[in-house]
């Protein structure tokens, strides 16, 4: 393995220095018999070092499948069928996670890239104490004694601001609240000091006041440790709070990526614009006399990944649709400084 790593990688030159991860035209399909569910159908996105990229989308947009593809944790029959996932390792070499052998992937999970989920109990084992689980993770990647690993585990709990860390090490996950478990999961994910953290809806199951605590913690950890975060969410409010960059997904594709201020100030894809209009806004949605105005929902439904429309997948719901949108799929093109849009007519927005 050392020999492979030391060989100059032809990929290294292809990824700019400040980029940690870049997915290029990634396709992940779930193939059952004759039918293919194109859950990820050409995703291109970029995570910059030390920044948070929020991937936002509704159910079925492919945001979770994208993250599982990056971690190569796809369940059968899911498979990456095309595209690249370029990742810059800590030593500077660039690898393509889409084709990396499973054996090398195992050294990357946890140590280079770690992942946290919406429901902490999917990653915490109910039969082991919190301390044992963090120690196992640490010792899998580093040659530490039990004693040293326990000390590190306690430091990890302190890092995520769990009070009485020493006592908590000997507790089981069920003895903790939802917010506390989410902190433990973050501690577990960070215990091998990953360069990239993938967080899949980490605050969705939490109450508002607990969500605020966890978002605050993640912001602080990023500032202190300098890790990059890929933050998957359906909540545009959370995006505004946590993201530097935003990628908006629709029906298996990124339809827009931009710095967070630019995206909210002037969305350059009709879907993003439609999504923002769906969220109630007290200033916009009240008439001068205080009467409520109706919201502007996006008509229709998200298309099925088993039967995506040809051309632009948003065309059937789009207010700007033109005949050629239905024949040809638009590419992701520049639409402003650092701003990409997958729309032929983005200049009208």
């Amino acid at each position: 393995m050392a020999a492979v790593l030391s060989a100059p990688s032809p990929l290294t030159a292809t990824l700019p220095e400040d980029v940690v991860l870049r997915a290029e035209d990634l396709h992940t399909h779930f193939i059952v018999g004759e039918r293919a569910a194109k859950s990820v159908d050409g995703v291109t996105l970029t995570v910059r070092r030390g920044e948070t990229l929020a991937v936002v989308g509704e159910s079925g947009s492919g945001k979770s499948v994208t993250s599982l593809s990056i971690m190569r944790l796809l369940a059968h029959p899911g498979r990456i069928v095309a595209g690249k996932i370029l990742y810059r390792m800590r030593d500077g070499t660039v690898v393509d996670l889409a084709t990396l052998p499973e054996k090398r992937m195992r050294a990357i999970r946890g140590k280079e890239i770690a992942m946290i989920f919406q429901e902490p109990m999917t990653s915490l084992n109910p039969l082991y104490t919190v301390g044992d689980q963090i120690m196992e993770m640490i010792r899998l990647h580093e040659p530490l004694s039990r004693h040293e690993a326990r000390r590190r585990a306690r430091q990890m709990l302190e890092l995520v601001e769990i009070p009485a860390a020493e006592k908590r090490l000997d507790q089981y996950p069920h003895e903790m609240s939802g917010g506390m478990r989410q902190r433990v999961m973050i501690a577990l994910a960070l215990s091998c000091n990953p360069a990239l953290l993938i967080a899949d809806e980490p605050t969705t199951a939490l109450d508002v006041t607990i969500q605020a605590q966890i978002l605050d913690l993640m912001r602080r950890l990023q500032r202190d440790i300098g890790m990059s975060i890929l933050f998957i969410t359906h909540n545009l409010g959370v995006v505004a709070e946590i993201a530097h960059e935003v990628a908006v997904m629709y029906a298996g594709r990124v339809v827009e990526q931009a710095p967070v201020e630019a995206l909210f100030a002037r969305p350059r894809h009709p879907y993003t614009k439609g999504l923002l209009a769906c969220i109630p806004n007290p200033e916009r949605d009240r008439a001068a006399d205080g009467a409520r105005l109706m919201l502007n929902p996006i008509p229709g439904n998200v298309p099925s990944v088993l039967n995506l429309p040809p051309g632009c997948t948003y065309a059937p719901r789009c207010p700007l649709v033109e005949p050629h949108c239905e024949g040809e799929a638009p590419g992701l093109v520049p639409a402003g400084p650092g701003h990409l849009s997958r729309c032929f007519r983005h200049e009208l927005l």
């Binding site: 609240s177 917010g179 006041t209 605590q213 605050d216 995006v239 967070v260 201020e261 909210f264 969220i279």
Partner: peptide, 21 residues
């Protein structure tokens, strides 16, 4: 003060409550 607002330019004084319910 902690309900997320979909506007990155809004700066609020957040009151983050300590502890659990």
């Amino acid at each position: 003060s902690t309900a997320p607002i979909p506007d990155p330019t809004v700066r609020r004084e957040r009151v983050i409550l300590q502890g659990d319910i």
